[in-house]
Design a protein around this nucleic acid. Structure first.
Lengths: 344, 344
DNA sequence: ATGAGTTACGTTACGGGTAACGCTACGCAG
DNA sequence: CTGCGTAGCGTTACCCGTAACGTAACTCAT
């Protein structure tokens, strides 16, 4: 019910205290419910807080005690890719439930952007950082080491992280899918993904996939799209390019389900029957897969859970509780009908 | 190249100054490039900053009161809906280019969550807030008014916002689509969307849509799904429910394209031919629409641009530059082949 | 009645940076 | 040589809370 203070953009605790006729310290105690004041005083101070529309200044609180802030910096490559949006959602929801705030940084898949963001966000004295990816610039690494705060690297599981790693082993993801497809009899594989300067988790999946395929006596024709975001259209377009290149492929593995769907659409346009003429496999078990007529062969990863696990790891580290260096959030293959059935 | 300080999690400017044999003030001047020091001193201080791995403490700077923070709080309902993810991407990219940081708050479509988040984020003295939606709790409104910082409300354009409104008129979006469908001869419309406690932009679209349809002598059968996120599956499931309810509809309008795609999939499963047996229209011109065989009848809105416009408005307001109270980022109808063609 | 403990406050110092002002040494014009 | 300006740097005060400590009034057991 603040009426007089509508214009007071900055009401300090001292002003509240003065209005209530007590000292700053007493007002502070009331505010924190710390005890050491009478009920009468408490009511008086609370009334003035309400009247003046006092908003606590956490900057001052953090600054005063050497307690750390409740900011957690979170770097995400891009949000056009649904899986990252889900990871971020998982992180923010969980962090918030523990009283922390997410400071976002979209890096556009570059370690330069990440470095610049790290430098800025560190100046806000965050309680910790959650970084997507395991590749960082040398200067970023130095800053991170010097910061002395918890660092959670997510996405591609890392057995020797800076601090804590949460995610899944993307090499294994690719390998398992590769082995599955080899088991189905596919030998001439295609891969469609986006291209980035820095090796990332998608690269790891491709490597694992390629290993499994070559182990099985097959080969992989790769097609990279110069697109930032691994979404529907790059899948569509990449498929067009791959098939136009003359590569004879019997099955295409996509960077993720969204791209796989784009590929499916291109195949349909071309009149190719899936899986009769060509097989299609994705990654991530993304939401769109739940409504398709054909169950898309994919690999399930719970992105929301991954994000939540990352936030839990962060909170545990901040609170000084023990937490394993690496937490594998797991995956499992989802056999679908966009690839041929297991040969009896 | 900090070597000795690897463990010094907190190196203050005073320590840098001491190492360089100058006063804090001189070190501060060097750091800010303010002038008033010799080149020799500058090099010395810079060298010590590097050596000790000093990280500026923006909390202290802001706290000192001479400048506002560079935080901008951004509230988003959820990230499972691609359009919000895109808006957020637009906001963060633009804010970052101006040197501001995004402090995220996912409200899960509730004004209670929004209120709690506003209270917390205000205590960090943000430079401004960008809020999705125009509905806020009474207490939130009071806090926002008292805060005395720029508030940009996005999504549903508001002619009398708290401060600045950026977005599109969702009522008009719905109305235009309704008129278009009436023009195609549809009279028995269906609507499939998600349900939330608070009236939101989707509600406004539905109202505009209903107005246009009833104006045209038709009717709208509504089907709401109890799903938080307006994505593929709710569209699929909602369509199933709507059709199972016995409503005789010749065309279904969906809350967005993702839901429309889910609906298309259900229609296909049911053996309904689109648009011969039933028409389908969406909203948002989402990425998936770009790869479908049939061009989805939809309404184009640039979510990325909307986010960027919101960030620009915020920066303008912070900088004291003039900015119109309401900025309409525009939309246009995209006629597709999931609805019947215009009757010659 | 006296000393000890408790309640309910107030006072002081502090944190990390910056604005405002003070001071010194040097350069240079008159 | 004197006076004044200025480059270059230091000193002080301050921002807003909170920890630590101080203190007056009161309670209560001995």
């Amino acid at each position: 019910m603040s009426e007089k203070s509508s214009k007071n953009s900055k009401v300090s605790l001292a002003e509240v205290a003065r209005a209530a006729g007590v000292s700053k310290m007493t007002a502070s105690r009331v505010l924190r419910g710390e005890g050491g004041y009478s009920e009468k005083t408490r009511d008086l101070v609370m009334q003035k807080i309400d009247l003046l529309g006092y908003v606590p200044n956490r900057l001052a609180t953090v600054f005063a005690g050497d307690q750390t802030s409740t900011f957690v910096g979170v770097s995400i490559p891009d949000l056009g890719n649904e899986v990252f949006a889900q990871v971020l959602e998982g992180i923010d929801r969980k962090l918030r439930s523990f009283g922390y705030q997410t400071v976002l940084g979209l890096t556009q898949h570059t370690i330069q952007e990440e470095e610049a963001w790290i430098e800025t966000v560190l100046s806000w004295q965050p309680a910790g950082l959650i970084l997507t990816g395991r590749s960082h610039s040398p200067r970023a690494l130095e800053m991170l080491r010097n910061a002395g705060i918890p660092i959670v690297e997510i996405w591609d599981l890392n057995s020797s992280p800076l601090d804590i790693s949460v995610g899944v082993n993307h090499y294994d993801c690719g390998f398992e899918m590769g082995r599955y497809l080899v088991g189905l009899g596919y030998r001439s594989l295609g891969y469609v993904g986006t291209s980035h300067d820095t090796a990332n988790a998608a690269t790891a999946r491709l490597e694992g996939f390629t290993k499994a395929i070559t182990d099985g006596g097959g080969s992989v024709a790769r097609q990279f799209c110069l697109h930032d975001t691994a979404s529907y259209y790059p899948g569509f377009y990449g498929t067009e390019q791959l098939l136009a290149s003359g590569a004879a492929v019997d099955c295409i593995y996509y960077q993720n389900d969204a791209m796989a769907f784009g590929g499916l659409q291109y195949c349909e346009k071309l009149g190719l029957s899936v899986p009769a003429d060509i097989g299609v496999a994705g990654w991530g078990d993304m939401p769109i897969a739940s409504v398709l007529q054909q169950r898309l062969t994919s690999l399930h990863v719970s992105h929301l859970k991954l994000g939540q696990a990352a936030a839990e790891a962060m909170v545990a580290r901040i609170s000084g509780e023990p937490h394993p260096t690496a937490r594998d959030t797991g995956f499992h293959l989802v056999p679908g009908s966009t690839t041929r059935q297991i040969i009896g």
